[in-house]
């Protein structure tokens, strides 16, 4: 599950960044809308924004909440997913509930959860936790279900107990697929974080975005978008490195270029 389109590293993505910035600059100059300042004006705000203690605290707070929600979700979701993959009964128990929760917009629970837990960290962390858990459970489940039965027989023949088999055979064998879920979860954590802050409008990067929008500080709005975008890109890149290092043994999915030769 490493599509070439999302795993190219190095120069091309950098060029793509520059190309997108150039396109933005060009569009701003051609259309001359007040809502679309040229790229260089927005980028000029970056140092000021990153040097501003309050903004920096806000960003750090957001990332901390995200990390906690994400971490807790992994602790719960990976074991649950793996168990579901190896036991028909456990899968039958959880599947309908998960299917019902799946299409619920998690960040939309924010106003309701805020009623119960207040506007503080607890609500936002809980929402991130909910957002991350589902894809991780789903992919861990798929990964564990696809583990070759004969590998488990061999392990059993060597005298491994069920729990040992789960940790030492199922987990590593399902790891490539689990990582697909974690990667999706990571992107979702960031999305849920920003969205919940946009809805709660009290702190964090999402709040800065809409406050600047309300105050017509368009340069700051765009600078903040660049920061969040960069955050997403860097987190994904770091995760890809980690994944490549941990599951280097996994066979890459066969990719054949068709059409041109």
């Amino acid at each position: 599950m490493t599509p070439r389109l999302t795993s190219t590293a190095g120069l091309p993505p950098l060029l793509a960044c520059l190309g997108l910035l150039a396109l933005w600059e060009l569009a701003a100059r051609v259309f001359q809308i007040s809502g679309l300042p040229p790229a260089h004006e927005a980028l000029r705000q970056l140092p000021a924004l990153l040097a501003d203690r309050e903004a920096l605290f806000n960003i750090a707070d957001s990332v901390r909440r995200m990390a906690i929600g994400f971490g807790l979700a992994l602790l719960l979701a990976v074991p649950v997913g793996l168990l579901m993959g190896r036991s028909r009964l456990i899968a039958a128990f959880f599947n309908p509930l998960l299917m019902i929760i799946y299409p619920v917009p998690k960040a939309a629970l924010m106003p309701i959860i805020m009623l119960w837990l207040g506007v503080g960290d607890a609500s936002k962390t809980l929402v991130i936790f909910l957002g991350v858990s589902l894809p991780v459970i789903y992919h861990s489940y798929q990964g564990a279900r696809a583990v070759e039965e004969k590998m488990l027989w061999s392990a059993a023949a060597m005298g491994m107990r069920p729990l040992q088999r789960l940790v030492r055979i199922v987990l590593p064998a399902a790891l490539p697929e689990v990582f697909v879920g974690i990667r999706t979860g990571l992107v979702l954590a960031l999305i849920t974080m920003v969205t919940s802050e946009m809805i709660a409008r009290q702190a964090g990067v999402g709040n800065i975005l809409f406050n600047s929008l309300d105050m017509a500080l368009y340069d700051t709005v765009y600078a903040m978008i660049v920061i969040i975008g960069g955050l997403g890109f860097i987190l994904d890149l770091l995760f890809e490195r980690l994944r490549a290092w941990l599951v280097a043994w996994a066979e890459p999915v066969h990719q054949i270029a068709v059409g041109t030769s």
């Binding site: 070439r4 389109l5 999302t6 795993s7 190219t8 091309p12 993505p13 060029l15 793509a16 960044c17 190309g19 997108l20 992107v187 960031l190 999305i191 920003v194 969040i228 975008g229 997403g232 890109f233 987190l235 994904d236």
Partner: peptide
Amino acid sequence: GPVVRVLAPVP
């Protein structure tokens, strides 16, 4: 490819 690589993980 590279454009998707940059934009896909952006929230």
